[in-house]
């Protein structure tokens, strides 16, 4: 006799969300269900024959699964898939679109540090690091992943409300001949031209030039 088979609605909006190549699979619960539903996850390297289960994301009721470790080789592309189950009912496996870590990640703004003298401010920028498995692991700056990486820097004179822009490749910028005793606010953005990737601008770092001696 045919096996009794009840189907559950599919998980929805299954996709990778990636920041600095921390690649996390996200999805929404099947329509009309909540956190009573459980899930399991598998992934595959595009062009390689097999799907691989992710044990840490088996029988979970959260709707995300960190696949950063499994997708850390950014010279490969990946698919991931999610299946929902509840009281013996199963959904279909629902797949992501093809995920390319190199082009589909979002880059954080650079870290900005500012110091000042009476007439100048010095800006130091640090590109974010690529996600890594553990603090002990060697850090890889996104500068190494995207060699053409540049910085767009905005400097706002709080007194005159005038904003200037600089576009630099190295990570330091000195703006001389400023007005003493004046507040300047600096923010910076990362720009990669191939593939085309722009970070948001960082939050503003304000500093005042020293008063005239």
């Amino acid at each position: 006799s045919g096996e009794l088979y009840c189907s559950l609605l599919n998980p929805r909006n299954v996709r990778f969300e990636s920041v600095n190549m921390k690649n996390v699979l996200h999805w929404s619960a099947p329509e009309g269900t909540g956190n009573e539903v459980l899930y399991k996850v598998k992934y595959s390297v595009y062009g390689v024959g097999k799907w691989i289960r992710k044990p840490e994301c088996k029988n979970i009721n959260r709707t995300w699964c960190d696949l950063s470790s499994e997708t850390s080789d950014y010279e490969e592309q990946y698919y991931a898939s999610v299946k929902a189950f509840l009281n013996g009912m199963f959904s279909d496996w629902v797949e992501t679109t093809r995920f390319n870590p190199l082009t589909d990640t979002k880059i954080d703004p650079p870290m900005v540090s500012v110091s000042s003298t009476d007439k100048s401010i010095s800006i130091t920028l640090t590109a974010p690091e690529k996600w890594k498995r553990s603090p002990e692991e060697e850090s890889i700056s996104l500068l190494q992943v995207y060699p053409g990486l540049q910085y767009n820097v905005s400097v706002l004179n709080k007194k005159t409300k005038k904003r200037w822009f600089f576009s630099i490749s190295n990570h330091t910028l000195v703006v001389p001949w400023l007005e003493p005793g004046t507040a300047y606010c600096v923010s910076a953005q990362i720009h990669v031209s191939a593939p085309l990737l722009d970070s948001d601008f960082s939050k503003e770092h304000c500093i005042a030039t020293l008063k005239d001696k």
């Binding site: 767009n152 905005s154 200037w164 822009f165 576009s167 703006v175 001949w177």
Partner: peptide, 11 residues
């Protein structure tokens, strides 16, 4: 490369 703003040339 991007003309969307006031670009600093030099002092």
């Amino acid at each position: 490369k991007e003309a969307s703003s006031v670009v600093h040339l030099d002092t």
